[in-house]
Each structure stands twice: as C-alpha cells, then as structure tokens.
Design a protein around this nucleic acid. Structure first.
Length: 585
RNA sequence: GCGCCUGUAGCUCAGCUGGAUAGAGCAUCGGCCUUCUAAGCCGGCGGUCGCAGGUUCGAAUCCUGCCGGGCGCGCCA
C-alpha cells in the first residue's frame, strides 16, 4: 500500500514540478508512514514539507498542488491536507478490509518474506564455556539468539544456528582439576579445594561418575600432588596455584588427564544441550574449538592473516596489527611460547564460517565482551577486506531478583541461579518472553516473584490470553450451533466499520512491516511490542462489542473472520518468539 | 584515563532509522461480570524526555559538550 501511494505521489510530483513549482526537486524516497491517530487517515506523507525548500513555497500550497495533480485510485477514499502540510490518505473500506483476506490466505506465512533473499546467515549464540550449567545470563543470549534466527528466517534468509564449544582452553583444564580434587576427596586424599576451582555441586557429581567408571585409576598421594606447588590464596596466588595443579595433574596422570578432561566436557555439554532443548532451542551444529587446532584450520587462518600483511612478529609473539583497523591496540595471535591465543582460534572459526559460504555472521555476545568487538572486526577486515560480514548483538546483563532481593550470580562460588531452575519456576513461555521483551541494549531486571505470580503482571499472559479468548469464541459459536463460514465472512467484511475494527485491521496490515523491521534491527522486542498492540486492541474490541449476534448472521461471520485473522497473527508472532499460543488458559 | 551501552510518569520500560496532542504496564483513585474466559475493559492522577548548546519548516529521536549509572580495557577465555 505504501508503494502504491508512493507511485501516486510521484506521478503528482512530476506534474507539479513541470507546472506550478519548477524548482521542486522530487526526493528519491517519498516518506509515507502510518498515522498514529485515525483522524489523520490511514497513511500520511510529509513530502510537501520536505520539498518546501527546493520549491521555494510554503508546504500547504505545495500540498494543495500535489493533491490537485494526484491520480485517482480505487483504493483511496479521500486525501486531505493537515497541520503544517501533511498529506493524509484515507483508504476505502475495501482497501482497509483486504488485509483480513491476506492474513487468512497466507496463514502461518503471513509476515514472512514471500521470496528468499538468497543470503546465508550464521547465527552463533550462547557458546558458553562448558564448565558448568547455564545461568540466567546465558538464558537471555539463548532466547535472543534463537529469536534473531527466527526473524532472519522470516525475512527470507537461509539461516544456521551454531554453538561454538570452547573445549580447548584453560577454563576447561580448571574444570578437570576441580573434578580431580573432588574425586580425590572420595578416596580420602586430603587436598584442599583450590580457591580458583569450580565449586558447584555438579563437579562432585562428575567426580562420583568418574569413580564409578574408573575406580581408583586417578588416585595419587597428597604429597606427590602438592610437593613444590607453592601456596594457594590467601598466602599465595590462586591463579598460579591452579595452573601449577593442572601441570602436576597432567604429569602424574599422563593419558588419564584427557579422560578426566573429557568426562567434564562431555558431562557439561550434554547438560547444556539438554537444557537448551528444554528451552526450545536446537542447534544445527556444535562446533569444537579444539578441532580447529587439530585439523590445521588455525594455521590456515594465520597464513591468510600473514598474507594480508596485517601481522607482525614482536617480542617473540605473532601479533595482528588490529590497531590499524580500528582497535585500540594490537593483539597477540601466537604467544612467545608458541601457544595460540583464544583470539587466533576464534579467527579460524570465523574464517571457517565464511569458507562454508555464509555471507553474514551474526554473533550474540554478553555485554562484557563488547571490548572484543573491535579486534574481531579487524580480523574479519584483514581476512575479507571488509568488516561488513560481521554483526554483533550484545545482550546486557540480567539481574535476578527473588522477593525483592538481588540474587548473586558468581559461577565460581556456585551460587548462581541456573537457566534450568528458572525454566522450572516460571516456565519456558514466560522466561523467553521476559528475556526478549526489552531491547537487548537495556539491562534486564528479572523478578522471579513477578514472573511466577499468576497475576496479570506477566505480559506474556496478556497476549496468550487474547489468543485463547479467540479460540474460546469459536468454541462458543460451535456450542451455540453457529457454523463459521469464512467465505460468507469475507464477503461481509464491509460491515466492519467500528473504530475498533478499523484499528485492528490497521495493526494486522502493519504486522509484516514490524517483523521486517525487527529482522533488520535484530530486535525481537519489536515483535513483542507489535503483539502487545494487537492483543491490546483485541481485548478492547472484545469488551466493546459482541461477536456472536443472533439477529445479524452476516456481521457475525464478518467478525469471526476478522478475529480469526487476529488469532493467526498472534500465533505467528508468538511463534517467532518461541512462545506457545494456547487454545485455552 | 580511553572505549561501548545507557538516562523518558513514583517504579519497569515503548517510542517505528526527524513529524501532528510523548505512550504502555505496575502502583494509586473511581467505574464495568444474569450475555463470547474479569489472566479482561473504561476513566482519573502523574512528564521542563539528565543538563546546555547546535542542525532543521519541525528534535525524545541527529551532532557537540558536560553530569549521572552499567560494563570493558591480559602473551586469560
């Protein structure tokens, strides 16, 4: 419809420029927007005001000339000048009600792009270290990433979801050492638990499983373990102590280290996978960081970077000269001791994504990683000549409140609230909706008491209730012996002239635009807001008018047809958010 | 110190890539259930859009400076 109006305006502008206002320059893009107030019609254009300068006339005079030159359209009822020079378009009843048929014809596809774009987009999200359960902060990234993937798919892109498994780093070694110490406790070997270790109960469980599977295979004496290791905090440095412990463990256990390491990794990965599936998220692939080292992908990436001329050897280490590409300083790729940095393997992973044919790489990261963005951009630019393929969305912190008190979230201290606990308490629907209903740039206060309470404080219920209410209306119709006849309803749509009905149809027709906008901005909260608007208008309509009218079958069918379309849009939007659309509540 | 995010009603937040009278929810005050689910609706109260400049016919929105809040600045991951 905007396109149609734009064509009408362009035709009119050409005439105006050829006649009364020869200096008028026709803008490349003619601004047309939906009006906020029904009194201003359905669509408004500011083109008269925008061209006031080039036409050297006041906007209202230009608007008058434009309207005089405007071609007639079967879809436009009338056109008015308003305010400082807005041109307001009022649609005919038929043009306004057409959206109902459009929704019903498209069904689940309404709001989705009709043609594939041919673009391949990789959405990588969560990618938390598998050294413990996911907590509520990861949950936001999970919900956000999954919804963004849904949106991009709706926008016509081919998408893939991926989880990058950090199975190669020091964090995983620390988990292995933590498991080992718990295992030793089971065998009465007295080694104090390292200050820098992971203290969660899940570590003890892995140790017990290890004991069941391997008996005393990994037992060593306290003396052999601690001799010459130095002191843990507070007397010594806790990081140095843990690193020393890991080195000692590798020396004493030999191949056994890999067994303990793998026990930790496998256990946590399985747990995370199960957790996310319970949250409605299924990945296309779990990509191992360690595999990049093994199969030479890191070397390959480093060669590419060297060939680009953006690297330098300094102090025995290989650096990416990222400061030449917007980063605040250069970054180490290969340490003086020959070990790859996390950055180097991460670059290899991103190169791998590009080589698999993905045009756009969307990464959803926690806000604490924002300092990492410039160096990643620099790396992509060094590899491809442009940082354009990389899109990073940050999710700001989640603070959890229980009974008005902030809940601590330290992984090391084991006092965090897990995503699994959260799902159990508030359910998947409420959790997912809460996570994405705010802009991801906004820190989120997640109040468990609020989300748990069955009151209307919970915004997800409001939308689901609208859907359930519509289902209930159809149930009532069936119970009353009123057969729903969509064809009759479509034919009678012209009877829907109430303000509530016009407003509802306007919202239905703007829904696809809002989905596309949400996709373009990687912002699922836009869909959440659109749904709230539809639900709001529906509840209002429901209270103002009855749908089942014994003495007016035509209007009854028309209204049922309208609310059927509303139900479809609610279901589609909730689907994009990964929230269910219940038939009853 | 530098960088990113952020500042809108008592509280939590929207505000559609500059538009017409700045909107919701919660809280508070008052109405609406013999009729399709009251998990709902209608109305009242409540705002110098952090502050100061600038661009523009027009600024909560764009630019600059200042003030406040969050986060980040490793040869860690």
């Amino acid at each position: 419809m905007q396109d149609h109006i734009a064509e009408l305006l362009r035709a009119a502008l050409e005439q105006v420029a050829a006649g009364p206002f020869p200096t008028l320059e026709i803008p490349g893009r003619i601004g047309i927007e939906r009006t906020r107030d029904a009194a201003h019609g359905d669509f408004a254009s500011n083109v008269a005001m925008a061209s006031a300068k080039s036409a050297r006339a006041n906007p209202r005079q230009i608007a008058e000339a434009i309207i005089a030159a405007l071609p007639a359209s079967p879809q436009v009822e009338k056109v008015e000048i308003a305010g400082p020079g807005f041109i307001n378009f009022f649609l005919t009843r038929d043009a306004a009600t057409a959206v109902v048929g459009a929704v019903l014809d498209a069904g689940a596809a309404y709001g989705r792009a009709s043609e594939p774009t041919g673009r391949r987009v990789m959405v990588e999200f969560v990618s938390a270290n598998p050294n413990g359960p996911l907590h509520v902060g990861h949950g936001r990234g999970a919900a956000l990433g999954d919804c963004i993937a849904n949106l991009l798919e709706a926008a016509g892109h081919e998408i893939a979801r991926e989880y990058y498994v950090n199975d190669a780093g020091r964090q995983m070694d620390i988990l292995a050492a933590s498991i080992w110490v718990r295992y030793l406790e089971l065998h009465q070997v007295s080694v104090n638990f390292p200050t820098g270790g992971y203290q969660g109960e899940y570590v003890r469980q892995i140790a017990r499983d290890l004991d069941d599977a391997h008996g005393n295979r990994f037992v060593q004496s306290a003396g052999a373990i601690l001799d010459g290791l130095g002191h843990d905090a507070p007397a010594g440095d806790k990081d140095a102590f843990v690193d020393g412990l890991i080195a000692r463990m590798k020396a004493l256990l030999g191949d056994g280290f890999a067994v303990v390491h793998a026990a930790g990794l496998d256990s946590q990965l399985a747990d995370i996978r199960d957790d996310l599936e319970g949250f409605g998220i299924v990945y296309d692939r779990w990509f191992s960081e360690a595999s990049l080292v093994v199969d030479g992908a890191v070397e390959h990436a480093l060669e590419r970077l060297k060939a680009s001329g953006h690297t330098v050897l300094r102090d025995g280490a290989l650096w990416l000269k990222s400061s030449e590409m917007g980063d605040e300083k250069d970054r180490v790729l290969v340490r003086a001791n020959g070990a790859y940095t996390y950055f180097a393997t991460d670059i290899a992973y991103h190169l791998n994504k590009l080589e698999r044919g993905f045009d756009t790489l969307v990464n959803v990261w926690g806000a604490d990683h924002h300092g990492y963005i410039p160096r990643m951009r620099a790396a992509i630019e060094a590899l491809t000549g442009s940082d354009e393929p990389l899109v990073v969305r940050l999710s700001q912190f989640v603070s959890l409140f229980r009974a008005g008190e902030k809940v601590g979230m330290s992984t090391r201290a084991g006092e965090f609230v897990t995503l699994r606990e959260l799902r159990g308490e508030v359910g998947v629907d409420a959790a997912r909706f809460f996570y994405v209903m705010r802009s991801s740039d906004q820190p989120l206060d997640f109040d468990l008491a609020l989300a748990t309470s069955q009151s209307n404080d919970n915004p997800v219920y409001y939308i689901q209730y609208a859907h359930a209410r519509i289902c209930s209306v159809f149930q009532q119709a069936a119970d009353a012996g009123v057969a729903y006849d969509e064809q009759a309803g479509r034919a009678a749509l012209g009877l829907l002239t109430e303000a509530h009905e016009t407003a509802l149809m306007g919202l239905l027709s703007s829904y696809p635009e809002r989905v596309q906008q949400a996709a373009a901005q990687f912002a699922p909260n836009i869909v959440a807001n659109a749904l709230r608007d539809v639900a709001d208008q529906f509840h209002s309509y429901y209270n103002a008018h009855r749908f089942l009218l014994a003495d007016d079958p035509a209007r009854t069918q028309a209204r049922l047809t309208l609310v059927s379309a509303v139900r479809q849009v609610l279901a589609n939007g909730l689907g994009l958010l990964g929230v269910s659309a219940p038939e009853s509540m």
